[in-house]
Design a protein around this nucleic acid. Structure first.
Length: 589
RNA sequence: GGGAUCGUAGUUCAGCUUGGUUAGAACGCCGGCCUGUCAAGCCGGAGGUCGCCGGUUCGAUCCCGGUCGGUCCCGCCA
């Protein structure tokens, strides 16, 4: 190219008047007045107005007339202050313009599928097909820059803390515990497969055994499970592991790292220590293991009142071992007409399989509407007193088995908060959820499975329960939750051969199977494994929160759709018969 | 695996409820006019397999069934 930029499109101001500059960039907008022509030239640093005036250079103006949106050009010109009354105070460069004396058209663009100036001008599938164009939009450029800054922040903080950065294999052994693996067939070993890591879990534990007591890695992980707004099949973790530590050491490191990133990126001050909550309390009070504590509205135990009502549904469910819990919506009963409550009920029925949603409204000092007739006046007074209810409050009741009751009411809590705007924008509320159960009963296979993963250490206080009541053993596992998102999770690991065997036994894995799957790790434990533990941050989710978006695709340069395909390059795709032959693979059907 | 929802010019949408002549608007695109705009303006033009397949009907963008694709959720995600 003939004209190489001397400045970017975001940096010229009144200070640069009379300087001769060269700008390179894309045409964001052209405004052709017949005579004078204005182009907004854009690069990732900003936009600058460049002006062609036929009185000054008729030939140049004639050439500019033919230019269109998103053409790539280079211009040489002189910076000038804009005439009085023509300053655009909305742009950092709005006080100046560049009067063009030379133009080089680097590449023309054909008509666009959507406007780069307006991300909403195309549907999401169209934008994903032309992701490279969407990445030119102001919003995505901002998100990608924020992501880049966050990598740097994490790296420098962890470096300051004395952590070593590693890379671990992407082609690894399949360990079919947990998520479904993405498999990679081996050409050399007929019928065998590598797996892409769900996380580098075993490698980082091996590195602890090797003596690298502070490890980190910013690493892609792969899980072949269904997607969500905050879940992609390949995603990035800040993976951390430390030796000679207990839970508090890991939590305080995670706190320092998180605080550092929010400070570096948003200049936002998180508290020096994050609040903690037991898993059990999170479930009971928020109906979720990742509670959003940006607003109150706790789930209230209601069984003791339900017993005293004449409402059959509550009594039947309690008798069957189920639950009754309630939610108090303050001073909004007048906004919840029959129709709106029916809508909420339908929504809970559809998404959470709930049979019904009961409610009462507070009219002065008595229940009205809904199921109020099932409450005696005495019971009403008792409840109003206990729950400090006031006129125009509303009580929602959910009753079902325990899991459904908590989940559905937790979801309703979030939905009501959204409708009532209870969440202040810009607020960030982190907390650690602790004391997760070690094991989870799996109905399908009629056995316990590891809730976190099978290397998670039980809480030593519950050691005795491992024989008598394994379902109630707590793990030394923890999650960092921010604004209702699980942002990080980890645990103190088992580091002795004996405890690891005991764990495998509890999840119904016999010695032979354990050897086949994790023999290499069990062997390593015999050679001096230090006590260790760690945590892994869901990097993409962290960026979502920093960026203030609710869609993980917004913070990944080339994301996949809900069906795990890439609309731009059309992956996954068919492959040649020859490729399959080399891999010893035959397609069925 | 299941549920909900969307699919109409290049694009974003309206029209469909109650089937019927020529499927509209805006932005973009093309042409013309226009010398200070920054959502530039004015005039004109081109542009449609109403996602696809089937059914009902004299007749389907519209009703029904299926299918494909997007999104959201449940299950799943150690």
């Amino acid at each position: 190219m003939r004209l190489k930029r001397t400045v970017t499109c975001g940096q010229l101001t009144g200070e640069n008047v009379n300087q001769e500059v060269i700008l390179n960039g894309w045409i964001a907008k052209n405004r052709d007045h017949g005579g004078v022509i204005f182009l907004d030239l854009r690069d990732r640093y900003g936009k600058t107005q460049v002006t062609f005036n036929p009185d000054i250079d008729a030939d140049m103006a004639a050439r500019a007339k033919r230019l269109g949106m998103e053409d790539v050009i280079a211009i040489k010109g002189t910076v000038q202050a804009r005439p009085e009354g023509n300053v655009n105070s909305n742009m950092p460069t709005g006080g100046i313009e560049v009067i063009v004396s030379d133009l080089e058209v680097l590449n023309e663009a054909q008509p666009l599928p959507f406007l780069v100036s307006d991300r909403e001008s195309g549907s999401e599938d169209l934008r994903l097909e032309y992701r490279y164009l969407e990445l030119r939009t102001e919003e995505l450029q901002r998100f990608m820059a924020l992501r880049s800054k966050t990598y740097q922040s994490a790296r420098s903080r962890l470096n300051e803390e004395g952590f070593m950065e590693f890379e671990t294999p992407v082609l690894m052994k399949s360990t079919p515990e947990g998520a479904r693996d993405y498999l990679v067939p081996s050409r050399i070993h007929k019928g065998r497969f590598y797996a892409l890591p769900q996380s580098p879990q075993t490698y980082k534990q091996l590195l602890m055994i090797s003596g690298y007591d502070k490890y980190f890695q910013i690493v892609k992980c792969f899980r072949d499970e269904d997607l969500r707004a905050d879940r992609q099949p390949e995603f990035t973790q800040i993976d951390i592991e430390m030796s000679f530590v207990d839970q508090d050491d890991v939590l305080s490191l995670a706190t320092r790292l998180t605080r550092g990133m929010f400070k570096d990126i948003l200049d936002y001050d998180l508290p020096e220590t994050f609040p903690t909550m037991e898993y059990k309390d999170a479930m009971e009070t928020y109906g979720s293991d990742k509670p959003d504590i940006r607003f109150e509205m706790p789930l209230v135990e209601f069984a003791q009142y339900a017993e005293k009502t004449d409402f059959g549904v509550f009594k039947d469910n309690l008798a069957a071992g189920g639950r009754v819990k309630a939610l108090v919506l303050k001073n909004a009963a007048d906004k919840y007409s029959r129709k709106i409550v029916d809508g909420l009920t339908e929504w809970l029925r559809t998404y959470y399989g709930l049979k019904g949603l009961a409610f009462v409204k507070l009219d002065q000092s008595a229940f009205s509407a809904g199921i109020s007739k099932f409450f005696s006046p005495e019971l009403q007074s008792e409840i109003i007193g206990d729950l400090k209810l006031e006129h125009n409050d509303m009580l929602f009741f959910v009753s079902d088995n325990e899991a459904k009751t908590l989940q559905a009411l937790g979801a309703l809590r979030l939905e009501l908060a959204k409708r009532e705007n209870l969440i202040q924008p810009g607020v960030v509320k982190p907390l650690f959820v602790l004391d997760f159960p070690l094991l989870d009963w799996d109905e399908d296979s009629k056995r316990y499975i590891a809730m976190h993963h099978p290397f998670t250490s039980p809480n030593p206080e519950d050691a005795a329960l491992m024989d008598t009541d394994p379902g109630n053993v707590r793990a030394r596992a923890y999650d960092l939750v921010i604004n209702g998102y699980e942002v990080a999770g980890g645990s103190i690991r088992i580091h002795t051969r004996e405890m690891q065997s005991r764990m495998f036994e509890l999840i119904g894995m016999d010695e032979e199977e354990a050897q086949a799957r994790f023999g290499f790790l069990l062997k390593a434990f015999k050679f001096g494994a230090p006590p260790h533990g760690g945590i892994a941050f869901g990097f993409d989710r962290l960026i979502m929160i920093l960026a203030g978006t609710e869609n993980i695709r917004d913070v990944i340069a080339f994301p996949k759709t809900t069906s795990a395909s890439s609309l731009m390059d059309e992956a996954p795709s068919n492959v040649d018969e020859q490729q399959l032959r080399e891999l010893h693979i035959k397609l069925v059907e």
